Simulated scan of single mutants.
Amino acid sequence: MLPRPFASALIWAALVLAAAPARAAPVDTLDLAVPQVPAAVVVEGRQRLLYELHLTNFGAAPLRLQAVSVLDAGSGAVLAGWRGEALAARGRIVGARDAALGDALQPGQRAVVFLELDLPAPMPKALRHRVEFSSAAAAPGPADTGRAEGAQVEGGQVEGGQVAPRPAAALPLAAPLRGGPWAAVYAPHWPRGHRRVFYALDGRARLPGRYAIDFVRVDAQGRTARGDADLAANALGYGEPVLAVADAVVAAARDGIGESARVSAHPRHDFDRAPGNYVALALADGRYAVYEHLRPGSLSVRAGERVRRGQVIGELGFTGDSTGPHLHFHVADAPAPLAGEGVGYAFEAFGLLGHYPGAAGLGERPWQARADDVAAQRRNELPESNAVIEFAR
């Protein structure tokens, strides 16, 4: 008898195969888990959940994932679903180089499906997940048609991974920067974007950048720099004051990491130095606001100090792993930049100017103007992916 896990449900799925009557039907096991309970954020008036569904093959045979659906646990209604290429683009198999969700999930392997879905109000009290899969008795042939050459493959499905979403955080945040325009750069589908990068530190894998935004200053023509864009100091946002988003206590701070004068000469950094110079603020509700890549020598606070919302705590810079000067901002459940789980947040006010579709053209051409039916003034929201916004001056 297997012990009942306290963090996830172990789901046993019977696969009924077309076989001779005397042959026993094989049984495979698939574990469905949602390790981090999601909380809603509001994006341009829509309730949004961001979370991950972990799928682990506990059976003796490889499985091929076919579809994933999110259900209202109460009514059974399907709220969202993905299959084929749409599903393959939503995740990967952990530890397998270049392994996509369309590849066979070998015994003992885990797949992570990154889910983002907009839900109507009121939010369902609980969600369940349905996974459709096939049992592949052998590895795919060279053509990788989705059916192993010479192998018997039958379909099956399993439901589980039930989770009750938490309400949105009650404490909205003040602006981390002044004025604008600022491009709020992030995209959930980027394979190496903040949303999809786990760090396995101190015996636990965490996703600190689940809701992270890179703020890049742009001008009316969409340029990110004046003159030679390879000079870090020419970036429009370089040296801009970085502000405390709430009355808080400085939980951690680091200064002293240098930066390259030229963007093209910037070296790679190990994971410990990847955030560069940073500040983490302990908010009153138990969350931590984390600011990364700050300019060397610009920090005006240190651990243990109390700060007031709007207070200057440093300047935007180019330290750590960075493709150009910007402010990395996220909120997490721990102050160390890479050792916390990213949690949702909202800014109490900002102006929406427009969007970059997929961040294409950032620094090269103007953004697309805001649609007329979308309000310019946003309150208690998270900016949409690659939105162009402005804060109060």
Score class of each variant (00 low, 15 high):
P21F: 15
A25P: 15
L32D: 01
V34D: 08
P38S: 08
E44I: 04
R48H: 07
E52N: 10
L55V: 14
T56L: 05
T56F: 01
A60S: 14
A61I: 11
L65N: 09
V70L: 11
S75W: 14
S75Q: 11
A77T: 11
A80V: 06
G81S: 11
G84S: 08
G95K: 00
A96H: 03
A104V: 03
Q109R: 03
A111N: 00
F114M: 03
L119D: 09
L119R: 07
M123S: 13
E132K: 13
A139I: 01
A143L: 12
E154M: 15
Q162R: 15
A164G: 05
A164P: 10
A168G: 14
A168D: 13
A170R: 14
L171A: 05
W182V: 01
A187F: 14
R192V: 01
R196F: 10
V197K: 06
A200G: 00
G209R: 12
A212C: 13
D219L: 00
A225D: 03
D228Q: 09
D230E: 10
N234Y: 11
A235C: 06
A246T: 08
A248L: 05
R254T: 07
R254G: 02
R254A: 08
E259M: 15
S264E: 07
P267N: 06
D270C: 00
V279F: 06
L281H: 05
H293S: 02
R295F: 01
R306W: 02
R308K: 14
Q311G: 04
E315G: 04
F318A: 06
F318N: 12
G324F: 01
H328Y: 14
D333N: 09
E348C: 10
L353N: 04
H355G: 04
A359M: 07
D373Y: 12
F391D: 02
